Simulated assay, not measured.
Amino acid sequence: MNLALWIAAALLAAVALTGGISKTFVPREKLAAAHGGGWTADAGTGFVKTLGVLELLAAAGLLLPAAVGVAPVLVPVTAGAWVLLMVGAMITHGRRGETAFVALNLVYLVLALVVAVGRFGPASF
């Protein structure tokens, strides 16, 4: 169980890192032209960059607290926050009719929910 939760957290951290880097450092206009990034055309630059920074923090929060043994409770808290972020992403993509991205966000949501429940419950640090 512990290994599965580490793998799930690492996968989510990779997703968060990728999304965070792109939203933080790629210009919004370029993101809007990319597949699945059309929503950024309707959002402000500050909002997109803020989401990017939050995703970078999530990438760190899913792994680092447990890896260094400092405040490991932040891992399930971060996973819970990721669940909320994915709900927002699903709503945004759903309004745009992007069902493939809604399904992908649902997969990320379930993975984060598994990490949150697992780390708060039977496999807590």
Rank of each mutant, 00 (worst) to 15 (best):
Val68Met: 02
Trp82Gln: 10
Asn105His: 13
Val102Asn: 09
Arg119Gln: 15
Ala13Lys: 05
Arg95Trp: 06
Thr18Asp: 06
Gly19Glu: 01
Arg28His: 08
Met86Cys: 13
Pro65Cys: 09
Ile21Gln: 02
Val117Phe: 13
Gly88Arg: 01
Gly94Ala: 06
Leu56Lys: 00
Gly121Cys: 12
Trp82Leu: 14
Arg95Pro: 08
Ala67Tyr: 04
Tyr108Asn: 13
Gly36Pro: 03
Ala100Phe: 06
Arg28Trp: 08
Trp39Ala: 12
Val26Gln: 09
Gly118Tyr: 10
Gly97Ile: 05
Val107Tyr: 04
Ile21Lys: 00
Ala43Cys: 04
Ala8Asp: 05
Val117Met: 14
Gly52Glu: 04
Arg95Ser: 06
Leu63Asp: 06
Lys23Ser: 04
Leu54Lys: 08
Val107Pro: 05
Val70Tyr: 11
Ala60Trp: 00
Gly118His: 10
Ala43Tyr: 03
Ala66Lys: 09
Met1Cys: 05
Leu111Ile: 15
Leu51Ser: 07
Thr24His: 06
Gly36Tyr: 13
Phe101Arg: 11
Ala100Ser: 15
Ala123Asp: 14
Ser124Gly: 15
Glu98Phe: 05
Val115Trp: 01
Ala71Asn: 02
Val102Phe: 07
Gly38Ser: 08
Ala16Cys: 04
Val73Ala: 15
Thr18Cys: 07
Ile91Ser: 13
Thr45Ser: 14
Leu3Pro: 07
Ala32Arg: 05
Ala32Met: 07
Thr24Lys: 06
Val53Asn: 08
Leu74Cys: 06
Gly19Phe: 00
Arg96Glu: 13
Pro76Asp: 01
Arg96Phe: 03
Val110His: 09
Ala66Cys: 07
Gly61Ala: 02
Val102Leu: 06
Ala123Thr: 13
Gly52Asn: 05
Gly52His: 05
Gly94Cys: 04
His93Val: 02
Ile7Cys: 11
Leu5Tyr: 13
Leu113Cys: 12
Glu98His: 13
Leu63Trp: 03
Ser22Val: 12
Gly36Phe: 09
Val117Gly: 10
Val48Gly: 05
Met1Val: 09
Phe25Pro: 01
Gly94Phe: 03
Gly19Arg: 00
Phe120Cys: 07
Ala112Trp: 00
Leu84Phe: 09
Val75Ala: 04
Met86Asn: 14
Leu5Ile: 10
Phe120Ala: 02
Val68Thr: 05
Leu109Glu: 14
Gly94Leu: 03
Arg95Gly: 12
Gly19Tyr: 00
Thr24Asn: 08
Thr18Ile: 07
Leu106Met: 11
Met1Leu: 08
Leu3His: 11
Thr50Phe: 08
Ala116Pro: 12
Trp39Gln: 09
Ala59Met: 01
Leu11Gln: 08
Ala9Lys: 03
Arg28Thr: 15
Asn105Phe: 02
Ala14Asn: 05
Ser22Asn: 12
Gly44Asn: 03
Ser124His: 15
Ala10His: 08
Ala14Gly: 13
